[in-house]
Design a protein around this nucleic acid. Structure first.
Length: 480
RNA sequence: CGGAGUGUGGCUCAGCUUGGUAGAGCGCUACGUUCGGGACGUAGAGGCCGCAGGUUCAAAUCCUGUCACUCCGACCA
């Protein structure tokens, strides 16, 4: 009977109220806490540890491609922000301003960085002189501030942690290549490390980053059928650098423009992890980003020898390189099981008198609850295999879910119907006019283009809204 | 920025209509019994009721203002 019962209280079922479920999981797993400033989070150890693992993985991938880390200021003078017209127009409504230093009013107000393109360009305008100074392939791990009106933990906060990479290159082609290269780094990291599948591609014209010529996006599908823009890579051409007066002298002693890129990945990815993999009992973390891969839970730990054996196992796993913890608190075993599940720890090892007697342990998978009996002297090796299987299975399940929620439509009614019934993405063709997209968004209750599909044959030659010749095929979806 | 709602021990909330000794459950602390799916008993600690005014002999409760947060919209490279 107990098996049929919902094992974890305090978490609203996912299908009953997804938004509430999300909030419950964030709270119960102690990932973050609201601070006294709206939209600014306290990242708690469980949440920050996930970010550290993502950070380490991404940073390694970046450095393999030659990225160098730097740190630029928190504040941007207003005059600097205003140098690129599209950029300032895009960000002006959501920047916060510093107007005073101590008691004195500042001559020029300073905005708290919403992103740092302007700071990088300002620096490069003063320091880049020659083709020998190029390329610059820099990145910073920091936080930025955007004065959002509606905020949600991880998904949309005012201050958020991220990395922002900024590069400049001597040629258009090299910069474009770098944009796509970093886009692929993001794709690999989502797939291999976060076990999150996605659709991806270029953004439509009006959805691009303020000032960008091209924006590449990764769009993951959450369990409620809504898309989450999960990382973006932008190609600026030379518009931005030109506005800042960045020029270099080429081999022929001629001044030339530089070409710029930027790319970012934020703590929003943690929200994606929760909403792609989580279930009614809480968080489910892919092993590669699980701060704790395995929790050892002694059963009947007051009995002679149980705790000693459990500690020995714990030490052995730690020496073998696992991120492992032991729960030797005086809570009941049921409590400990539930807690491990809420936290999303990928495996637990139960070790009790029966196991010790049989020289075995019981490994329980978080994702499937499958119990696997493993001989005591084989566990240090086998656990790695089990974790890898979990990682792979989680990706495959999410991939199946994504595939099952991608549909096509060639007529508007068909599309409306599909958004009414099937959650997810719908492929449809479009003339490229933002007004048509707006109309579609209105009649479907919020579905817009998420990214363009450029490597497949178009399923129709006319726009889903106006019927005029289609320029693009796109994934449409409702988004966070 | 529009609509709605909520501020009372750490958490979830009751009490407010009809003003009169500040409550419950959970959590926390100590001790004891338990221990293979959220155990139980006993004892205990913890609150100027978001803030500021006002009405009153008396305000968590009524009035005015204010601040904050949550949800739904609009907005959101």
């Amino acid at each position: 009977m107990a098996k049929d019962k919902k094992l974890v209280k305090n978490i609203t079922p996912r299908d009953e109220n997804f938004a509430q479920w999300y909030t419950d999981v964030v709270r119960e797993a102690e990932l973050c806490d609201y601070s006294s400033v709206k939209g600014c989070l306290n990242y708690l150890p469980n949440g920050y540890a996930i970010w550290e693992l993502i950070q380490a993985d991404l940073d390694r991938r970046f450095k393999e491609t030659g990225v160098e880390n730097v740190s630029l200021p928190l504040l941007i003078p207003e005059s600097l922000l205003e140098k690129e017209a599209d950029h300032v127009e895009g960000f002006a409504p959501e920047v916060a301003w510093v107007t005073h230093g101590g008691m004195e009013r500042l001559q020029e107000r300073l905005c708290v960085r919403p992103t740092s393109e302007t700071l990088f360009c300002d620096l490069w305008a003063r320091t880049v002189k020659s083709y020998r100074d190029l390329p610059k392939v820099w990145n910073q791990w920091n936080s930025v501030l955007r004065w959002e009106k509606t905020t949600r933990p991880f998904l949309r906060s005012r201050e958020f942690l991220w990395q922002e990479g900024h590069t400049i290159h001597a040629t258009y082609e090299e910069a474009e290549e770098r944009t796509i290269q970093m886009f692929h780094v993001y794709e690999d990291c989502y797939r291999e490390t976060l076990a999150i599948p996605f659709v991806s591609g270029r953004k439509a014209e009006h959805e691009k980053f303020a000032g960008a010529q091209d924006t590449y996006t990764i769009e993951a599908l959450m369990h409620d059928g809504k898309a989450l823009q999960s990382a973006t890579s932008h190609f600026f051409g030379s518009g931005f650098p030109d506005a800042f007066g960045i020029k270099y002298i080429d081999k022929n002693n001629e001044p030339q423009s530089v070409y710029e890129t930027s790319w970012g990945w934020s703590t929003r990815s943690i929200g994606g992890l929760i909403m792609v993999h989580g279930d009614d009992d809480g968080l489910v973390l892919p092993p590669h980003v699980a701060p704790v891969e395995c929790r050892v839970i002694p059963i009947a730990q007051h009995k002679e020898g149980v705790l000693d054996r459990a500690y020995a196992l714990f030490d052995e796993l730690k020496r073998a390189g696992y991120r492992v913890k032991i729960d030797d608190s005086d809570k009941s075993p049921g409590w400990k099981f539930a807690e491990q599940e809420i936290l999303g720890i990928p495996t637990r090892i139960e070790i009790g008198p029966k196991d010790i007697e049989n020289n075995q342990v019981v490994v329980v998978r978080r994702d499937t609850r499958e119990k696997i009996i493993v001989k005591m002297d084989e566990i240090a090796g086998k656990l790695r295999d089990i974790l890898e299987v979990i990682q792979q299975d989680m990706y495959n399940r999410a991939k199946d879910f994504l595939n099952a929620h991608i549909d096509t439509a060639t007529e508007l009614d068909e599309m409306k119907e599909k958004f009414k019934q099937n959650r997810g993405f719908v492929k449809a063709c479009w003339c490229g006019d933002p007004e048509c997209e707006g109309e579609v968004k209105y009649v479907t209750g919020g579905a817009a283009t998420r990214c363009l599909i450029e490597d497949e044959e178009m399923i129709s030659d006319k726009c889903i809204w106006c019927g005029k010749p289609a320029k693009h095929m796109a994934y449409w979806g409702k988004a966070y």
